[in-house]
């Protein structure tokens, strides 16, 4: 079971969180024309990297905040967690 450092609450057990997918996916802007390719990429196309991955987690049984986690998908090592407003480089 992972141990995740919520940027708002601190280290908590994985049980308290829900996974939310790739954090680098950007939704096309609302009320703007978008090409079919761009839209389909946004809705369906995801990379599934082995190794470092920046992803979203939601502290559903805690502060209810979504935030970013940089995790190694092979080893589960977590390098960094950050608020949505912060960048992970």
């Amino acid at each position: 079971m992972l141990h995740i450092n919520c940027p708002f609450c601190g280290l908590r057990a994985q049980k308290e969180f829900a996974y939310g997918g790739d954090a680098t996916v950007k939704r096309p802007e609302i009320n703007k024309e978008v090409s079919k390719e761009e839209w389909d990429n946004f809705v369906y196309m995801r990379k599934s990297p082995r190794g470092k991955h920046i992803e979203l987690w939601h502290h559903i049984s805690g502060c209810r905040q979504w935030f970013k986690v940089q995790r190694d998908t092979a080893t589960h090592e977590i390098f960094k967690t950050a608020k949505m407003s912060e960048e992970i480089v």
Binding site: G20, R27, H58, R64, Q65, W66, M84
Partner: peptide
């Protein structure tokens, strides 16, 4: 969760 996702992230 869906509403929070759009308000906090998008």
């Amino acid at each position: 969760s869906h509403l929070e996702y759009y308000l906090q992230i998008v």
